[in-house]
Design a protein around this nucleic acid. Structure first.
Length: 284
DNA sequence: CCTTAATCCTGGAAGC
DNA sequence: TGCTTCCAGGATTAAG
C-alpha cells in the first residue's frame, strides 16, 4: 500500500504553506538533485531573491508564485514554480529554529530570510518541479491540459467530460483532463458513495448521476481535507502532521472484506491499469 | 477510439 | 533470520 497525494492532501499542504511561507523572501536555494527540476534549473528560476506572493493549486499541483523585488534581478512579471508531489512527495515548512536533517530524498531546500526553511522531499521521484517565467505561462502551457478542479467543477462540465467517451467511468475520472485532482483512492470511494460501478461506460452516465457525482465529490473531498488527508505511509502535511482520513475508507484497500452497507464481499479488479475495489451489490 | 504494457523509483510486505 | 520477489502508484509514451 502506498500513498497518493491527491487533492485533499495537496490542499492541506497549500493551506499550511499559505500560512507559513507567504510573504517571506527566499534567501538561498539548495538543489541537491537537479533532475527533479524540469525547465530552467537555476536559483533565480526557483524564486531566489523573491518574496513568495502566494501558493496556487489546480488539482494535485501547486504553484509557488514569486514576486520579484523592484530593481532586483529581472524585475517584472513574477516567476513561478509548479510542484507535483507524485506518489511520495512532500513539501514541508521548517520554522526558524526547527532542525531540518536532509537525507538522500530531500531534493530541494529553500532557505528563507528570517531563518525558516521549506523542503521538497520525494523518495520515489514520481513528482517534480517545473519552472516558469510567470503564472500566465504555467496556465497557458502545463495547466491548460488539465480539466476543472474537482472542488469547483460543475455537473454540466463533468457530464460533458464523461459522456463523450465509452471508457469506463473509473478511467475517465482518473483522467486529469476530465477533472483535476482525483486519484485512485478517491475515485473508488466516490463511485462507492454514488452506487455507480467503476466499469460503467462513461457514455451511460446520466445527468442525475453527474449531479450526484459532483455533490458527493465535494463532500468527500471536503471531509478528507478537514481530516487532514489520507495517510497511508509517507504523507505528511506542511508541518509534518499525518492525516486522519484513511480510517474512513469504505472500499479502498478493503478487497475481500465485507461491504459496510450490504455485507457482500468487496471485489478487486484492474481498470485503466489501476487496482479497483468496489461492491458488486451496491454499485451498478 | 480504446486498452494494455512498459517506464520511471523506492520501500514495505510477503514468500521461502 | 535473511534473502528474493512482488507490488503499489501518477503520468507519459509506445504499441496493439
Amino acid at each position: 500500500m502506498a500513498f497518493m497525494p491527491e487533492l485533499p492532501e495537496v490542499e492541506n499542504v497549500c493551506i499550511g504553506l499559505n500560512r507559513s511561507v507567504v510573504g517571506q523572501t527566499v534567501a538561498r536555494v539548495s538543489v541537491r538533485r537537479a533532475d527533479v527540476v524540469r525547465g530552467l534549473c537555476r536559483p533565480r528560476n526557483l524564486l531566489r531573491g523573491q518574496a513568495i506572493q502566494r501558493i496556487d493549486r489546480l488539482g494535485k499541483q501547486f504553484a509557488l508564485v514569486g514576486k520579484r523585488s523592484v530593481g532586483g534581478e529581472a524585475s517584472g512579471s513574477p516567476a513561478c514554480v509548479c510542484i507535483h508531489l507524485g506518489m511520495t512527495g512532500s513539501l514541508r515548512f521548517y520554522p526558524s529554529g526547527q532542525r531540518l536533517k536532509p537525507d538522500n530524498h530531500t531534493h530541494i531546500v529553500w532557505q528563507l530570510e528570517g531563518g525558516g526553511k521549506m523542503a521538497f522531499r520525494d523518495p520515489r521521484r514520481f513528482g517534480g518541479l517545473w519552472t516558469f517565467d510567470s503564472v500566465a505561462s504555467l496556465e497557458a502551457s502545463r495547466w491548460s491540459k488539465l480539466g476543472e478542479d474537482a472542488l469547483t467543477i460543475t455537473p454540466g462540465k463533468l457530464h460533458a467530460g464523461l459522456t463523450t467517451t465509452r471508457r469506463a467511468i473509473k478511467a475517465a475520472l482518473l483522467d486529469q483532463a476530465v477533472v483535476a485532482g482525483l486519484g485512485n483512492i478517491y475515485v473508488d470511494e466516490l463511485l462507492f458513495g454514488c452506487g455507480i460501478s467503476p466499469l460503467r461506460p462513461g457514455s451511460e452516465v446520466s445527468r442525475p448521476d453527474s449531479r450526484l457525482l459532483v455533490r458527493r465529490m465535494r463532500a468527500l473531498l471536503a471531509k478528507a481535507i478537514r481530516l487532514g488527508g489520507s495517510t497511508l505511509r509517507d504523507y505528511v502535511n506542511a508541518t509534518g502532521q499525518s492525516g486522519g482520513f484513511q480510517g474512513q475508507h469504505q472500499v479502498y484497500g478493503r478487497s475481500g472484506e465485507t461491504c459496510n452497507i450490504c455485507g457482500k464481499a468487496l471485489v478487486s479488479t484492474t481498470i485503466a491499469g489501476r487496482t479497483t475495489v468496489y461492491c458488486p451489490g451496491c454499485q451498478n
